[in-house]
Structure formats: C-alpha cells, structure tokens
Amino acid sequence: MDIIILIIAAFGAGALNTVAGGGTFLTLPALIFIGIPPVAANATSAVAVFPGYAGGALGFLPEMRSFDRSLLLRLTLVTLAGGLVGSLLLMVSSDAAFSVIVPFLLLAATLVFLWGERIRGWAAATTHGVAPYGNIALFAVAVYGGYFNGGLGIVLLALFALWGMTDLHRMNGLKSGLSFALSGISVMAFAVAGLVEWNAAIVMMLAATAGGYAGAPLARHIPMRTLRFIIATIGFGMSAIFFFHAF
C-alpha cells in the first residue's frame, strides 16, 4: 500500500510540475503519511523531483547559452552556495521543528503559486533601483530552495522580473538551469548526510518521470483555470492538515 501511495503521489507530482508546478504538495505529504520523518521526507521529496529539473535544463539549453558565460557561472555559483546553506539548515532542523514550519511553507507556496503572475507583474513594474543579476537576493532565494523546494520556480521568475528581464523564454531557461544546479547540490548534501530514503526515492523518481511525460498532453487539454483550482485545493488542503497535526 505504501508503494502504491508513493507511485500515485509521484506520478501526480510529475504531471503537475510539467503543466503548472506544485508537485511538492503531493510528494512531501505522501512521504510523511507512510511514516518517513518530516526532515527525511523533505530530503527524499527533493530527490524524487530531481529528474524533472534535469529534463527542463536540457530542454532550455539554447536559452541558457544566450547568457554571457561569466554571468551564468556567477549566478550558478551563488545558487549552489545558497542551496547548500539551505540544505544544511534542513539537516540541523529537528523533525519537531520542521513539522511546525511545514504548514507555513506549504501555505506560502500555495499563495505564491496562486499569485505568481501578479507577483511577476508587480516585480516587472518595480525594477527601478534594483541591481540586475544581484547576488544577495538570489542567494536568499536559493537558501529557501535548498530548505524547501515548493514554489521555487515562481519565486525565481519574480526575481528575474525584478532584475528587469522580460523575455519569458530566457527567464524560463535561466530558471531551469539554476533550479537544476540547486536541486543537484541539495540531493548531494542530503545523500551524504544519509537523509534520503532511497527505496522510496527511486520508486518516486520513476513515477514522477512517467507523470511528467503524461503531463504534456494533459497540459494541452485541461484549462489552466481548472489546473490552478486543483493545485490550489491540494495546497490549501495539505496546509490545513499539517496545521491541524502541528498545533
């Protein structure tokens, strides 16, 4: 039964990440539900969705190559540093402390998902005085991504808009490349620390990959408003459940 739950959750997460995002709303609760401690569940969830970032980065290689190599290298190094710090913060968090933080993170990620377009619009309109390609803001976002991955892509796109970027294809390319780098350093750190439940992770990686492939035709036929409603319902529902158990 545990394996069935993980397969269903990971398949759904792969599909959601392909069409809109929000896969963490399924993978993390499923891992905790089957009895994996919260910190280990979060680390295992990060490993489970890692193949999706690899595929996205490969798909956006032309857009990433349009950036200056020295700039791309600097942004990647900043992202790696922030992701490592966030991963280390997760490692030193107790399960009890993380259980209290999780509902707030899930709720925040749900709100960011719902308001993502408006956040990016606001960011694009307030670029004056914001340093382009700044290190500090990217480092902070990467720390969040290393600690908890939910909503990372939307936050990165909003940051790029603040930097003055307007080409969504280049923004998505940079987002995919940096997300892949951040996820990679997090997976390595969690693996070295022994936080990953590999049996669950491998099952979920395979199911998430299949779900990501299946998500492409779904994206063409399901209205975005319907998808947003489904993901928001899952996000708010999971947040309520975790709030109930934490408090």
Rank of each mutant, 00 (worst) to 15 (best):
S239H: 00
L16E: 04
L152I: 13
Y147Q: 03
A57W: 02
G52N: 04
V141M: 07
A41C: 13
A207V: 14
D167A: 06
A124Y: 03
G184E: 01
W198I: 04
I7A: 11
L71G: 06
G145S: 13
N17V: 13
A246R: 06
S66R: 10
G52L: 09
M64H: 04
G164Y: 02
H221E: 06
N172T: 03
A30I: 12
Y213H: 12
E197V: 14
L88N: 08
L114N: 11
R170H: 12
A10I: 08
M91P: 02
G82Y: 02
L90Q: 05
G211L: 02
L162C: 03
M188A: 14
I101R: 11
T18M: 12
Y53C: 12
L84W: 01
L182N: 00
L114Y: 06
F139V: 15
A137D: 05
L107I: 08
F60W: 14
L90A: 11
N135C: 12
F148M: 02
A125G: 14
A142L: 02
A48L: 10
P132I: 04
M1F: 15
W122K: 08
G14M: 11
L114F: 06
V39M: 07
L58A: 15
V192E: 07
I136H: 09
G153L: 00
L156R: 09
I185C: 03
S70T: 11
Y53D: 11
R170Y: 15
A131K: 15
V102F: 09
V47M: 11
R65C: 07
R228P: 08
V112Y: 04
A97W: 09
A214C: 13
F139D: 09
M165F: 15
S179T: 08
L16G: 07
F50N: 05
R170S: 08
V39F: 01
F244G: 06
I234P: 05
V155R: 01
L6R: 00
R118E: 14
H128V: 11
L16T: 05
L227R: 01
G194C: 07
Y53N: 15
F247P: 00
T226G: 05
E63I: 04
F160G: 02
Y133R: 15
H128E: 14
N149H: 08
Y133W: 10
L111W: 02
F243N: 05
G212S: 12
L168D: 00
T18Y: 06
A81P: 00
T110K: 09
A43T: 13
L77Y: 05
L159K: 04
I234D: 10
S93M: 12
R120G: 04
I136K: 09
Y147A: 02
G21D: 12
S186W: 11
F242A: 09
S66E: 04
A161V: 00
G129A: 15
R220V: 09
L16N: 07
D68W: 13
G212V: 03
S93G: 10
A200P: 06
G173L: 08
L28R: 08
G129H: 05
R69H: 11
F113R: 15
L75P: 00
L80E: 05
A124R: 11
N17H: 11
I34L: 03
F33P: 00
R65A: 10
T209M: 13
Y53K: 10
L159V: 12
V19W: 01
T27Y: 07
G121R: 08
A200C: 09
S239A: 15
Y144A: 05
M204Q: 08
L72K: 08
N17Y: 11
G56Q: 01
L218M: 15
F104W: 11
V47G: 06
L28F: 10
